[in-house]
């Protein structure tokens, strides 16, 4: 990994942190929990890393095991996170509809 690449990745890091702050500066308190669990699901993006690790050919046995475990945990994070958020938001939604009616 060369220095150029690290600098490039650091650029991306800084810009996305700045973007994150701008994006979510004002959140009504009703949405605090869904925002938290929804963004938590996104943090399961580590799954991509876990997948490439579990799919290597010349794998070291240990790194295969670690990769598969990482896939399991990250998938649980992703799937569980999105579904639970959807379940919560559905409750909010349902109520809004009733108000309209």
């Amino acid at each position: 990994m060369d220095t150029q690449l690290i600098i490039f990745l650091t650029f991306i890091l800084i810009l996305s942190i700045a973007l994150g702050f701008e994006l979510i500066s004002k959140v009504p308190s009703t949405l605090h929990t869904p925002l938290m669990s929804g963004s938590n699901a996104i943090s399961g993006i580590t799954l991509l890393g876990a997948m490439s690790l579990a799919g290597l050919t010349e794998h070291h046995k240990l790194s295969l095991i670690l990769g598969v475990l990482a896939v399991i945990f990250a998938t649980t994070n992703v799937v569980g996170g999105y579904l639970v958020t959807d379940r919560m938001l559905e409750m909010f939604k349902k109520k809004e509809k009733k108000e309209i009616l």
Partner: peptide, 21 residues
């Protein structure tokens, strides 16, 4: 670690939203 930009972007978005909360 795996030099994947998507992980970095998604991770920092989550990091920032967590800090705001």
């Amino acid at each position: 670690v795996i030099q994947n930009t998507l992980l970095i972007v998604a991770g920092s978005l989550v990091g920032a939203s967590g800090i705001i909360l």
